[in-house]
Design a protein around this nucleic acid. Structure first.
Lengths: 189, 189
DNA sequence: CTTAACTTAGACAGATCGGTCTAGTTTGGA
DNA sequence: TCCAAACTAGACCGATCTGTCTAAGTTAAG
């Protein structure tokens, strides 16, 4: 492993845990480098600033979710199973960070800390829009285009609401409840 | 009006605007007192600490929503109109803070900044649970208890998801979309 | 008018913030 | 083996953070 990658990876891992658990502005640079076991200059050699680290964090969370989704998608097919692959990717994510305290969607939490107009918010908005479009794609083969888009919106709202509520409760129970709802909706088509 | 109340009110108003627009940890004490036009000691005479101000802020947001809901409820009846009163209270809130930049649910945004186990998160969780119970109450007269609870969960997820997504977009369009969905669901009973 | 509660402006404290810099060490590849 | 790139520890900077304190001014009720 190349050493440059090592420091950057250690920093991103440490930032991911701290940003998610404590919030972004509540997490100082010093806490990140201490957890990463890395010198402060290594942070500024790999990232332009704390803001740059935050942007990389947002990108990494998006990539992480995409990975979970792809893994679920390979085991599933298109149509109803595709829709549930999206849902299960959320559940996988929820139960992954469970022991460290599940606190909802990291991207949504990050956006909540950023002022209106911040570029980070656009990344999150784009991610959520992509999820809705993935749902619409899976639904396209099951109904009319119009209804597929309407259902994709509805399911994405259900998902986002469930993950927020589940984060407040600290466990994935409400997410499983949402999965059952979504499964019913899709199977009724 | 008693002067003691004046300072406290000015502080809560200023904190509400700044906390909502910029986030809580990104908002310093000095910014709050400057916007309130009040001396720093007035803050610490009325609140134990910044944390105390944050707690009062959470309580005030909960009360504010309850006020909007009560106003909507008086104009509406029970049953389907009661459910839509809950939804319209959200919409009223969204469009109230619209010009200053709509950024989603203030309580959910605040919770996103607080670490797991923080008492503030419990306040938010209780608020969201109450909303779901209000929905269940309105639905109780329209269907079985079991289905009323299931629908209340589904509608509360839809609402929370829609307000989060709408906050990312910066306008209330997605909330109106959710209102139409919920209206359809309730009217189909 | 007097008095006590509340207010003000602003200095001040100690801690922490993000970020820079230096100087020396480790490391991987030619 | 040697060199350049990456890494280390930690001092240091100015700004900002929450919170305390003082001293003087305002206000309302008795």
């Amino acid at each position: 492993m190349a050493p440059r990658i090592a420091a950057r990876t250690k920093l991103l891992d440490a930032a991911a845990q701290l940003f998610y658990a404590e919030g972004i502005s509540a997490t100082g640079i010093d806490a990140v480098i201490a957890k990463a076991g890395v010198a402060k200059m290594s942070l500024y050699n790999n990232f332009e600033s704390k803001t740059g680290l935050v942007m990389a964090y947002l990108e990494a969370r998006h990539q992480e979710w995409s990975g979970l989704y792809q893994a679920r998608l390979e085991k599933a097919g298109d149509g109803a199973d595709g829709v549930l692959a999206v849902v299960d990717a959320y559940i996988d994510h929820a139960e992954a960070g469970y022991e460290h305290g599940f606190r909802g969607c990291g991207l949504l939490n990050a956006a909540a800390e950023l002022p209106a107009g911040d570029p980070g918010r656009s990344i999150v908005a784009a991610h959520k829009l992509q999820v809705e479009q993935l749902l619409a794609g899976h639904l396209a083969s099951m109904t009319t285009k119009k209804q597929a888009e309407a259902l994709a919106g509805q399911i994405s709202f259900l998902l986002e609401g469930a993950i927020s509520r589940a984060g407040l409760e600290g466990n994935s129970a409400l997410l499983l409840r949402a999965r059952a709802m979504i499964s019913d909706i899709v199977k009724a088509l």
